[in-house]
Amino acid sequence: MIKVLFFAKIREQLKTSEIVVNENPETVGDLRKLLWLNGPDWKSNLSNDTSLVAVNQSLRDDSMPLKQGDEVAFFPPVTGG
């Protein structure tokens, strides 16, 4: 089980803040491709160009391996400060 969180514009566009993935994607890239299967909105909002990804609350890229129980978050480039 992998917990997947969405924030800001991506959360709004996908109309969900959290889902649970029961498959076992090996990497962040594999998870991303799995989520794209949910529809065109998912593919456009979770593309490599428009979203950042964190695994267990640290910024990572698509090559990051995943394990059961990980928390993965997708979000737009940050705009705080």
Partner: peptide, 26 residues
């Protein structure tokens, strides 16, 4: 600290103008 806060810390601004609300672009 400010330069990295603005590019690494997960905050997002949604602004309200006279006509609408929109997410601020990085």
């Amino acid at each position: 600290i400010m330069d990295f806060l603005k590019t690494k810390a997960p905050f997002w601004k949604k602004e309200t103008s006279e006509n609408h609300q929109y997410w601020v672009d990085a």
